[in-house]
Nucleic acid binder design. Structure first.
Lengths: 204, 204
DNA sequence: TTGACTTATGACACAGTGTCATCTATAATC
DNA sequence: GATTATAGATGACACTGTGTCATAAGTCAA
């Protein structure tokens, strides 16, 4: 999290900084990004940067979290629209992600995020809110799921299902950038995998 | 790949270098590792390093690939032992991985690999051989799979199944380090997820 | 006006990278 | 055996980037 000083800045200055950061993180992935570029682009001195953030990563994950929050709020609202149908929700979310990632404003940023997706990135994208509210958020979300359509016996298995769906979804988003799939190809692959997951991998 | 000069070195010197690299990559993940430490530990001058490798990453992926090759050869031999049963093979491989990762010789190296697992790491671990032989390798492997037990209709779906199983397996290995699970807990979770995958996530 | 506190600033020390001119060893040719 | 060509070794150096810190500048309450 940014230091308190950052939050004392005017909304204007905050946004200038975030915009500069996004520009740099769209140019190159986190580990290649340079603070020098961000401050030059934001027009602030080096010392100031360290008044606001611990380091590069602090800023990056703050930015990523902001974007993730939007997606997660959307995920929840879709889940409600679809009356708790988890598969429909994941598919609609995947389609929405395809749109977001095609948007020039976000394209390169997400490309750099997904091609360098690691545990910490994924966790940030998957958990929208900071620690205190995390558990509550999780329980609120799973309460919305219609478990009657799922082949599960307990909450543990529901958790497994979410893990699997999340994993497959991220994997497919990564492939989108790696293989440079068209939206149609990407969706076709994703639907194929979701379908396999639904009906089971083993012949009965 | 290392430069030709590296392969002209004596086996002895090659191993010294690899050992030094492994030491450094066990200490910290790739992006925090320093060439300065590796050369100090291997006792070679800085200039020599660049005679042998493009950069840090070149050395890292060469090392990771070496270890991955071992695992993949093992995967294939297990697949044959299990008469092409993909689920049994993945489970046995997962168990073997638990053992490998508990081994002090490898533990910290793999911890750094898995906690910073990204697309490129995963690809290296999943494809044992360098480009020329990759496709052949893949086709040889899938020929060993007993597809009669799988709920699939074509090769495309077989590919999906492999993607899904790989993804879930890596996810669980990452969790092993993130959550610091015991081997028993890790295996229980993995078996739970594989079981769900086999029987399908949707109630029929 | 003063003191206490917060924020701003850029020079600086430090760490690490990749290159290159120069030296050394080894092999090939006459 | 002398000479030339080729490959390899070496470490000083230029460069890029990080995080810190002493100092300056605001801000606000008493």
């Amino acid at each position: 999290m940014p230091k308190p000083t950052y939050f004392h800045l005017s909304k204007d200055k905050q946004e200038t900084l975030i915009a500069a950061a996004k520009r740099e993180f769209s140019r190159v992935p986190l580990h290649e990004a340079s603070i020098a570029n961000i401050i030059k682009s934001a027009g602030i001195p080096r010392g100031s940067f360290y008044q606001y953030f611990e380091d590069k990563e602090d800023l990056f994950y703050y930015l990523l979290n902001q974007l993730a929050e939007k997606s997660n709020r959307r995920f929840i609202s879709v889940l409600m629209d679809k009356n708790g149908d988890l598969f429909e929700t994941f598919i609609a979310t995947f389609q929405f992600m395809l749109e977001v990632h095609r948007n020039p404003e976000h394209k390169n940023f997400f490309k750099n995020v997904y091609l360098n997706m690691n545990y910490k990135h994924e966790k940030t994208l998957a958990n929208n809110v900071y620690e205190e509210t995390q558990k509550t958020q999780y329980f609120n979300t799973i309460k919305l799921i219609d478990t009657s359509k799922l082949n599960i016996h307990d909450e543990q298995e529901l958790h497994h299902v979410l893990k699997i769906l999340m994993g497959v979804t991220f994997q497919n988003l990564i492939q989108l950038f790696v293989k440079e799939y068209s939206d149609e190809e990407a969706l076709e692959n994703y639907l194929g995998q979701i379908d396999l997951l639904k009906r089971g991998l083993q012949k009965n």
